[in-house]
């Protein structure tokens, strides 16, 4: 028996919104520790990894590890039937054919349940080593979203350069070119969540497809901060911490100048 209850049901809506345009089908693995998911986009250049710890749920029970093969667009359709303030409970048997979703309104006046058919999904699972990255940038997620959105109007490829002073996002295209530099905040600058912080061992410059960075920014509503982890010649990790429960991380292979 698997049962997971989230008082803040809208969180689940936001998570599926953050993934479903990049990945159409995925296995969500449920164990005693919580929920995890790893899935690549169709072209295998990016990967999305979700981690939700059992302690972040209001109730969590998983007697036996199971894998839920989900069509994320269909799950998104069902989650649209939940109110934003609803409590959401997920339920499945030990060898499930379906996932049951129960939505309860805050005053318990409306209770609905839906069953989503599960699928057998063959997936490749990549072993991602726990790396120390040469640069880790922490910045407001809304700022990152804006930069990606703005630069995508001009070109397809974004050059991200991280130095001690700041992070420069550059783009060039047929109509011209553009740069946005965000500078490291000084300690006195306002709220923690509005700050840009850079931890750097050595400067890094990498090129990325803005189309994919755009997909990643669908996770912006999940939290105020995004972290970018970069090292030379390896995929970037764009990590959105989800307060109190876990995180969603996207990996994107850099573009190589030929």
């Amino acid at each position: 028996m698997f049962e997971a209850r989230l008082t803040e049901g809208s969180l689940l809506k936001k998570i599926i919104e953050a993934i479903k345009d990049l990945v159409q089908e995925a296995n969500v693995d449920c164990s005693e520790e919580g929920l995890t998911m790893q899935a690549m986009d169709a072209s295998h250049v990016s990967l999305c990894s979700l981690n939700m710890r059992h302690g972040g749920f209001d109730h969590y029970r998983c007697d036996r590890s199971i894998s839920l093969g989900l069509n994320l667009a269909n799950l998104g359709k069902i989650l649209k039937c939940a109110g934003n303030d609803d409590v959401v409970t997920l339920k499945a048997e030990d060898e499930p054919d379906t996932l049951t979703l129960m939505f309860e309104s805050p005053n318990q006046e409306r209770i609905s349940d839906f069953e989503l058919k599960l699928m057998d999904i063959e997936t490749e699972h990549l072993g991602i080593p726990n790396e120390e990255y040469k640069c880790t940038i922490s910045m407001p997620s809304g700022e990152f979203q804006r930069i990606v959105r703005d630069l995508a109007v001009i070109g397809e490829t974004c050059i991200i350069t991280c130095t001690k002073e700041g992070v420069k996002f550059s783009v060039s295209g047929d109509l011209g070119n553009g740069n946005v530099t965000v500078r490291q905040s000084s300690a006195a600058d306002g709220d923690e969540k509005d700050q840009v912080k850079i931890q750097m061992e050595e400067p890094v410059t990498l090129n990325f497809a803005l189309r994919y960075l755009g997909f990643f920014t669908k996770a912006t509503p999940l939290g105020s901060t995004v972290k970018l982890h970069m090292s030379p010649d390896v995929p970037i990790v764009v990590e959105y911490p989800i307060d109190g429960i876990g995180s969603i991380s996207y990996f994107l292979a850099p573009k190589i100048d030929e």
Binding site: H44, L126, G127, V234
Partner: peptide, 14 residues
């Protein structure tokens, strides 16, 4: 010209 590599170039199958 930009070459977009796949993630499999960087990570092994688990």
């Amino acid at each position: 010209f930009w070459l977009q590599r796949q993630l499999g170039k960087y990570y092994e199958d688990a």
